[in-house]
Design a binder for these strands. Structure first.
Lengths: 226, 226
DNA sequence: TTCATAATTCGCTCGTGACCAAAGTATTTA
DNA sequence: TAAATACTTTGGTCACGAGCGAATTATGAA
């Protein structure tokens, strides 16, 4: 007997409908919460929690805790590659499953994450501000640079009022649709309310979707560009 | 709910230690018998039979019946690719299994398959004779061409005596080590006995291994070359 | 023919694991 | 502070399937 990779353990992790559905849902690259994955898999949150523990233990997923949410994503490209290979075989053989429909495309464009702006605009903003030296990332923390204070003041964000709040001024927040970090915390909330106040965007009913008007999007991008 | 590939069904086929061991054993490309796979997997033939039915049903393996043997091999490169992807993930995560040692290298070089010659020399012979028009393949059948009769007569194979035997004159036979077809049937047996009679090769004890002496191998290749 | 080997099918036991409801923990909101 | 939400843990049921031995079928060898 010799040593070799234990393919069975890994394959068994894929080989259960609930877990397979979760992994396929994660193939979009989005980080999903435990509850969302439960819905995708068609099981209760309790069952999903057990499955997610197994996936984590098997090293197939990574979990990022964020407030009362836990965002799961595929551990690395190798895992995604394995899923793809299995999909290829399954498709060739003709085995099909029922699968939840595609996500609402509008949700991918711009969302509000609780009370701050998310979506690809928010990700872009975060990336630009990081690059421009407005924000400074350190591990999980994100802080405003000195220059950042000035930049925000110029753009009508009242920092003195924000500082009084107990919530952290800056925080990274995984974006659902873009799966990259964007700006949460007090500034994120302030940016969103500013965009809403200026009429650049508006909430749709009670959903989390935030729609920018075409001129509003243009104005917003101009606003946050350095 | 929409249609999609059922990855779970395929993955579950991999996700059982016995089946995983079988598939890994087949990754060498060799076609293995049910009993051999049972030994590889560490289960009884009865259990192995059930697993092999499942693998066949899942489209992961193909089975070729041959006498009282059933040779199994991976269905196609996609399956091998999926196994590789799973191995990659398993290895990265560090999950290891116990695995049977490598096969006897001597067995790969030349074997006798019941009573006819197998191994890479036999495969080479089969390929050359096919190319030279001595043999003509049609589906599973292999027949001697008219020219083939002459070629064999020149080389000391008595066809009239062979024709009296009930067994088919020519038959393809999967080679274990080379996984390609070689020549079975009466001619295959005759070739082997000729090689043994000429002292080019000899059986080792009661095993199926046939060893060619270096000059014997040379003479044998010369003999079957057109 | 009779015997041996390869493989399958059958009947059965037993362990694993998927599942849910309910209770518990943590975190945010009000 | 209390209430709501997200998630986990616990306890329990239940079904699937892996495993084996024995009997059966099929093929090859003597």
């Amino acid at each position: 007997m010799k040593e070799g990779p234990d393919i069975a353990l890994v394959a068994a992790s894929f080989g259960e409908p609930a877990r397979a559905n979760m992994l396929l849902a994660l193939m979009s690259g989005m980080a999903l919460t435990a509850t969302e994955l439960a819905r995708e898999a068609g099981v209760t949150p309790a069952t999903a929690s057990g499955h997610l523990s197994k996936l984590d233990a098997a090293g197939l997923t990574l979990c990022e805790k964020q407030g009362r949410h836990r965002f799961y994503r595929l551990a690395d490209p190798d895992v995604a590659h394995a899923v793809e290979a299995l999909v290829t075989v399954a498709a060739r053989v003709g085995h099909m499953r029922t699968r939840p429909g595609p996500r609402d495309e509008a949700m991918r464009h711009a969302r509000s994450c609780y009370d701050h702006l998310a979506g690809h605009l928010a990700v872009d903003l975060f990336a630009r501000w990081s690059k421009a030296g407005v924000l400074k990332s350190l591990d999980d923390r994100v802080d405003l640079t000195e220059r950042g204070y000035g930049v925000l003041a110029d753009r009508g964000i009242d920092l003195t009022q924000l500082a009084k709040s107990r919530r952290p001024l800056c925080r990274r927040c995984i974006d659902w649709s873009e799966r990259r970090h964007h700006l949460g915390g007090g500034i994120g909330a302030a940016v969103l309310s500013l965009a809403l106040a200026n009429g650049w965007a508006q909430r749709k009913d009670k959903s989390r979707v935030v729609s920018f008007t075409p001129p509003g999007e243009k104005a917003f991008v101009e606003w946050y560009s350095i």
